[in-house]
């Protein structure tokens, strides 16, 4: 499954916008694109508003990003997560690792306050 990934910077925070379905096929590509963007003490927002499906492999990429960010003393926030995906994340325990915001703006605010 193809996904689109766009990277931008807002207020010195990296914003990665993802669209499509994140599954076993697309997850490795996403991982290799996003991992290098993590910086020491840096913050990163993943805008997932365009993500319509997230498989177990997709959730694992998110958690891997989180773990890598923590190792670099950084922070990761998720924005625009669809309700069904958020629910799956809550039930399986993935959700509570993340700062979750409704929109990218809210995510930026939260990260800047932290």
């Amino acid at each position: 499954m193809a996904i689109q990934v766009e990277v931008s910077t807002r207020n010195e925070i990296t914003v990665v916008t993802v669209a499509g379905e994140i599954d076993g096929g697309s997850a490795p590509g996403l991982q290799s694109q996003v991992l290098p963007l993590l910086q020491q003490n840096g913050a990163l927002v993943l805008d997932l508003a365009g993500v319509t499906y997230m498989s177990s492999a997709g959730l694992r990429v998110l958690l891997l990003l989180y773990r890598q960010a923590v190792a670099r003393n950084g922070r990761v926030a998720l924005a625009g997560v669809a309700e069904t995906i958020k629910d799956t994340m809550a039930v399986t325990g993935f959700l509570k690792f993340f700062t979750v915001a409704g929109t990218v703006d809210q995510a930026l605010t939260t990260l800047q306050q932290a």
Binding site: T88, V91, G93
Partner: peptide, 18 residues
């Protein structure tokens, strides 16, 4: 609840953890 997604292993482990 996540059986249709094949995530019963994670869901059950999360239950144990909670």
């Amino acid at each position: 609840a996540t059986g249709p997604l094949g995530m019963q292993v994670d869901e059950f482990k999360n239950l144990v953890k909670e």
